[in-house]
């Protein structure tokens, strides 16, 4: 145990995800030994981010304004919406530069163990966005785990309406990998999801 404020700092850092007691201690001492200016800057950024960043009123993505950059971008296609669990999934898909439509961030997945039901997700907002018929395709890109799949199934049943195509991301083998290194579950899924080669 360290004295007073140092231990308090270590405890606070240790509360962050992915940081154990040892890392917390290392970071705390790094902060102690750094020039005052850098620490002030870090503190300012921390306060600023809490103050400025909010959630896009349309899609739920993180944003510094009422709506996010993607929703405001006129070049994005308004006919396709990609539904993801978290804002960080938006960044992952954006990195591909393949998708030119809009997003909808649910804010999690259905998980009764954690007390999260459909009412706790931004599903009502999604339905409102679909109401005027502009959107013709919804791509469900929830995580390929049990909770993500359950959420996808729920949405699929909810979104049955004329003129709307609902699709789900494929799951299968990683590109550039070797078949022999794939684990059984992934390889098994890839078998299930095999498709006819066009002839």
């Amino acid at each position: 145990m360290y004295e007073g404020i140092i231990q308090e700092l270590i405890d606070e850092l240790g509360r962050l995800p992915g940081i154990g007691p040892k890392s917390a201690q290392r970071i705390a001492f790094h902060i102690l030994q750094t020039e005052t200016f850098d620490v002030t800057h870090l503190a300012e950024v921390l306060l600023e981010v809490k103050e400025k960043v909010r959630f896009c009123e349309i899609c739920g993505n993180v944003s510094e304004q009422d709506t996010c950059n993607i929703c405001r971008d006129p070049r994005r296609s308004a006919t396709t919406i990609c539904v993801v669990e978290e804002a960080k999934d938006v960044v992952a898909i954006e990195r591909t530069r393949e998708f030119r439509g809009l997003y909808h961030v649910l804010g999690g997945a259905i998980s009764p163990i954690d007390g999260i039901g459909p009412d706790d997700l931004r599903i009502r907002q999604l339905l409102q966005r679909l109401a005027d018929g502009t959107v013709t395709e919804v791509i469900i890109a929830t995580d390929p785990n049990l909770e993500g799949e359950a959420t996808a199934t729920y949405l699929t049943r909810l979104l049955v309406q004329p003129g709307l195509r609902v699709t789900r991301l494929a799951s299968g083998l990683p590109v550039g990998g070797d078949l022999e290194y794939a684990d059984e579950v992934t390889l098994g899924r890839a078998f299930e999801g095999r498709r006819l080669v066009e002839q």
């Binding site: 039901g117 459909p118 009412d119 359950a150 729920y154 049943r157």
Partner: peptide, 13 residues
Amino acid sequence: SSGLSTLEIWDDR
């Protein structure tokens, strides 16, 4: 309760 609407989903899984 509204939670029941998702019971079907878990039944399915």
